[in-house]
Design a protein around this nucleic acid. Sequence first.
DNA 1: CCGTATTTGTCCGTATGTATG
DNA 2: ACATACATACGGACAAATACG
Lengths: 231, 231
Amino acid sequence: MTFAATLDLLKKQSLPTLVLDELEHMIRDGRLRPGDPLRENTLSEQLGVSRGPIREAFRSLAEKGLVRVEKNRGVFVRTISLSEADAIFEVRMALEHLIIEKLAEMPSRVQHSTLYALLTESEARAAQSDYAGCHALNLEFHEMLAQLSGNATLLETYQRLVNELALFRHQAHAASRNTESLRRSVADHRALYEALVVGDPDQAWRILQGHLQASRQRLRILFSEESVRLT
Amino acid sequence: MTFAATLDLLKKQSLPTLVLDELEHMIRDGRLRPGDPLRENTLSEQLGVSRGPIREAFRSLAEKGLVRVEKNRGVFVRTISLSEADAIFEVRMALEHLIIEKLAEMPSRVQHSTLYALLTESEARAAQSDYAGCHALNLEFHEMLAQLSGNATLLETYQRLVNELALFRHQAHAASRNTESLRRSVADHRALYEALVVGDPDQAWRILQGHLQASRQRLRILFSEESVRLT
DNA sequence: CCGTATTTGTCCGTATGTATG
DNA sequence: ACATACATACGGACAAATACG
């Protein structure tokens, strides 16, 4: 679906919101990379709207931490340093801790969710070495956990941080092709799921902690590779 | 300092940013109360700027969770239900947990900060029964803790949640005048400070947990009083 | 260092949608 | 139900700042 089509069909949302969604997708899936400028005129022509709604969408993006605005210079997709990414990750871990703490208290909700389907599907993708597909499903898995927590603020805050971290991955040219880490990742997810279904918070946290530490470590490695690439 | 003066002096910031700051203050200190409409024309005249920058500031406020935008109807200061406030509080507690966990690892930073001055000042205000002043200092105390953590994302996320909770307090006409709870609150802060200075994370968390639970409880009571008032 | 092209910043006019009598 | 008043939504024009030759 093109943006123009979206524009015609969904009259329920305001233009700034539609533009925001479009730009957010472009940033999230890497069509717009960290450091790229977002020019009002260009986007205005591409999306077929005037500059007003574009500028309003920029303010939302800035507040979301996806772009930085430099007065009289323009807006650019946000770049994230390793230390920033690490700081974000630290907060993310605290949120995931809370998430699984809450989920361990309601195993039946976990069991009746679509988590299991997501899990088996991502295992299938991993077996087929479908890196991109598996990675996307893994993100969905974590997001579904946040959603099942039943705390809207928790979900929103979590999503925000994950979006910022996705930015960092794109910046580092990250298309992780490590079969071993992919397999371990989905195995972690399954173990986490099992612990949640039986309502064991300590076990769940142990697994998640290891899982996230590994992910954090991969982030650091990614960054060092990126640094080398730039020299 | 009036807004017009601010407008002239600070040419470093764009108008939308200045408007955003102004509106944020007005909401935070209760000049604009939850449910109040923010009309483009009115604000445009009051602040002496055109409607464009106003609309851009609205998008930032919406993303911050301080207003809700209804298409073709207007923007209103956000109202927060008890369950929403409780959800926000839950996330806030998780963040404060992380904050003191980090601070307990660097007692010298805590000791060399201005926390102690803040603490004694708020104790003085409490002794004088200066509720408003003491409450403001208490907020500053918590915010300072977040800042000392050294994690920018942690600070920003914390501030966002506290701003939303302030909204809830205004909605509930909250000017807590309970001498006893005020005294206990500052006593908790002192105890927390002591635990952090000696680097005892468990003790610090015990104190903070009790402190926050009490605060959360007061929020609930506030709400029930508000409900009665509306009948 | 200056002039020009480009981009952002701001303002205002018109269209459209909503509430109210 | 309809007309009127009023608010927002969007687009376009002009001013100001910046980047570049």
